[in-house]
Design a protein around this nucleic acid. Sequence first.
DNA 1: AAAAAACTTGACTGATTGGTCAAAATGTAG
DNA 2: CTACATTTTGACCAATCAGTCAAGTTTTTT
Lengths: 211, 211
Amino acid sequence: MTQTKTKTTRIQEINRGIILDAALEVFSAYGFRGTTIDQIAEKAGMSKPNLLYYFPRKEEIYVNVLEKTLDDWLTPFRHIDPKGDPLDEMAKYIIAKLKLSESRPESSRVFANEILHGAPAIGDFLQTHLRQIVDRKIAVIRTWIDEGRLAPVDPHHLIFMIWATTQHYADFKVQIGAVVPDRVEDEKFYEETAAAIITILFNGIRPRQDY
Amino acid sequence: MTQTKTKTTRIQEINRGIILDAALEVFSAYGFRGTTIDQIAEKAGMSKPNLLYYFPRKEEIYVNVLEKTLDDWLTPFRHIDPKGDPLDEMAKYIIAKLKLSESRPESSRVFANEILHGAPAIGDFLQTHLRQIVDRKIAVIRTWIDEGRLAPVDPHHLIFMIWATTQHYADFKVQIGAVVPDRVEDEKFYEETAAAIITILFNGIRPRQDY
DNA sequence: AAAAAACTTGACTGATTGGTCAAAATGTAG
DNA sequence: CTACATTTTGACCAATCAGTCAAGTTTTTT
């Protein structure tokens, strides 16, 4: 049993958490290169050498932050239930992702930034795990379409549309705030957004012949 | 007539262009902070001091690149024609934006990166010019809806959905490539994408009762 | 309470990088 | 051809920043 000693102390657990929380904020605002270890250390309320005691490399902090965001990002997707009603499941997924965009926009932005720059740190993950999960959900959508419970649309592009749209409200918040009349910070904005997106996605923009 | 001498020579015009083209590539790959002047200079095939002779500050290069991308980005939007058929105009806009995402993804990425990080360089532009242009198009969409030529959807969210989706194919290309079975580089991929998006956006995913 | 282990930090270092400068090379106008 | 303006660059500088180190402090174990 030559097991490497990986005893994690109480202090370690606390401080790793503090560091990752601080790092998420800074990375989301300035990107990987734009972030300095000093910034993270200050936000975490500890000295730089101390921070480096927990994460010896800047990149290690980054990868850890990314892993957390990936999890956030994928959880609602995993929860799409093949046994549920197709439209209900889509609506639930959209609402969950929008809620996340509202409550944890930093998370979304770190992820977006990573992908935007070619996914240097998580490219492998995308091609293996993400690909696998997506394939599974694609199959579910295909079944729904075959059963006539969903219009015959391309499953991949449907998923991309939902990803893109929901992500947009976190990543392009500044642009939305500049363009939308009233308060984006408004309590109701998220609910209105969800309703509007679901309406468009479910029914389309082609006018019906009921007038 | 104490006009400041701004005689632009032939060499200046050529070199400014070369620099901005090189800078677009580098900025889009690494972001503002992640890009070094040396990188741009090397890609432009000139020495760093020479580059700084044309653009004395790194930020000046960046702002100039951004202005070009903004123009790219907005042109198709400006071309939405109030007198055209609503669905045709929407389809044309989507196709134009997708084509741009395919032919000039760097442009899209530089823009996305700027917004993602809070639009430090173009925040003003968004709140004045972009806001104005959007307001005008919103009015057009409202008219179309009032005339019964478009389903009654929220114009802002419709625009955001289209922006988000089309932008996604440039900005998240790595992710799409990791998840889509065959070749994203495939000639036909862009056409299939446009068709799929238009179908979903026009008709929605709710199954019709025609079976 | 003593010893060991874990934690913390001020001071430092080497590498990178934005930007300067003065001198050389090239282009241009008369 | 000559004088002047424009363009180009090697060498350099000061600031920033990731990461080190050795010496201290605190916590845990026995």
